[in-house]
């Protein structure tokens, strides 16, 4: 029996859709939740919130730097702002404001990037965010979350609402498979063990979690036992889970829809080097991608279960005898 049969990977909604639903939900419970948008609410799905709570919705127009600082001002006066745009716009154009007006004074603002990674497809590289985790990770005190499906996104939004401080939630445009049951326990800051394994550990976030499950299934067919960890929280990093994985499986693969130079992979390498050195292979984006279908672009740029399988074998081969 295949190890991965417990995951049917049924078609699910996009994590941006999950964000929109979850934001409206938390807003019903907490009157301090407000939203800031830069003319993309119909794409970020903040539109659900905006329609239900028009007086708590602040349309900032196409001016992301101002939007982030408007959100900071709202937070300074006691609100819980969710500030959202395409990840590439809000993180690149709003970064300085996230640094000076949110992270540095520890202001209670939540930034939600949608359309992250290269799986947005047709719109191409100017709209693709492949550096947002590096930017968010460079904000001291921030919690950085990249959920894999609807349930994980909802958990992230709910946690962010209750947590005082800066939070970045990374979501995607494309529909992603269902990983978690509706009642699954997702603890921000703790990696989720999705599949046990002894030969190699596959570490991923966002849409690459499903690819790792598929890779584990393929590896199982070849007699290789792969552990799969969902690292939905990039920061703070669950170093204990990594140390344990490195010790118990002796090799790791990190797979992410992000620049390979500056995403989860480098953080994993730092933690593994510190606690239990082991060979690690890295799957990620090397440079700016191109237009194509949401399914086709990740294939061309190396983000598939087949790439993970090959990397896992390479990592295992590098284990010291």
């Amino acid at each position: 029996m295949s190890v991965a049969t417990k995951y049917e990977l049924k078609p699910g909604v996009a994590t941006r859709e999950a964000f929109g639903r979850a934001l409206a939900e938390v807003a019903r419970e907490n009157p301090n939740v407000v939203g800031c948008d830069a003319d993309l609410s119909k794409s970020t799905m903040m539109t659900y919130f905006a329609k239900e709570f028009p007086t708590r919705f602040f349309e900032c127009g196409i001016a992301e730097a101002n939007m982030v600082a408007i959100g900071a001002g709202l937070a300074m006066a006691g609100k819980i702002p969710f500030v959202s745009s395409f990840s590439c716009f809000v993180m690149n154009k709003g970064f300085e404001q996230l640094r000076t007006d949110v992270a540095y004074p520890n202001v209670n603002l939540k930034v939600v990037g949608t359309h992250s990674g290269i799986s947005i497809g047709e719109d191409g590289p100017s709209q693709m965010s492949i550096e947002d985790l590096a930017l968010a990770g460079a904000l001291p005190g921030f919690t950085v979350i990249s959920p894999a499906d609807e349930v994980a996104t909802r958990a992230a939004v709910r946690w962010a609402t209750d947590h005082f401080g800066g939070v970045f939630i990374r979501t995607g445009r494309a529909k992603v498979p269902v990983i978690y049951a509706a009642d699954a326990k997702i603890e921000i800051g703790k990696a989720n063990l999705l599949l046990p394994g002894t030969d190699v550990t596959l570490v991923a976030h966002g849409m690459m979690v499903a690819e790792c499950i598929r890779a584990a299934e393929a590896l199982d067919g070849e007699g290789i036992s792969a552990r799969v960890l969902d690292f939905h929280t990039i920061k703070p990093l669950d170093e204990a889970a990594l140390a344990q994985a490195a010790r118990e499986t002796g090799a790791l693969v990190v797979a992410e829809e992000h620049l390979v130079d500056c995403g989860l992979g480098v953080r994993v390498a730092q933690a593994v080097a510190r606690h239990a050195p082991a060979p690690i292979e890295f799957i990620g984006v090397e440079t700016y991608a191109e237009s194509g279908t949401p399914e086709g672009v990740p294939i061309k740029y190396g983000l598939t279960s087949a790439h993970i399988v090959a990397a896992a074998k390479k990592a295992i081969a590098r284990k010291s005898k």
Binding site: V34, T55, R56, F58, A65, N66, V68, A69, I70, G71, A72, G73, L74, A75, M76, A77, G78, K79, P81, Q97, T100, D101
Partner: peptide, 17 residues
């Protein structure tokens, strides 16, 4: 260049309250 946005965000929150 950032204080006006902060002021307007605060002003928005104060009106909301």
């Amino acid at each position: 260049g950032q204080g006006l946005s902060l002021a307007l965000g605060m002003g928005s929150a104060l009106k909301l309250d």
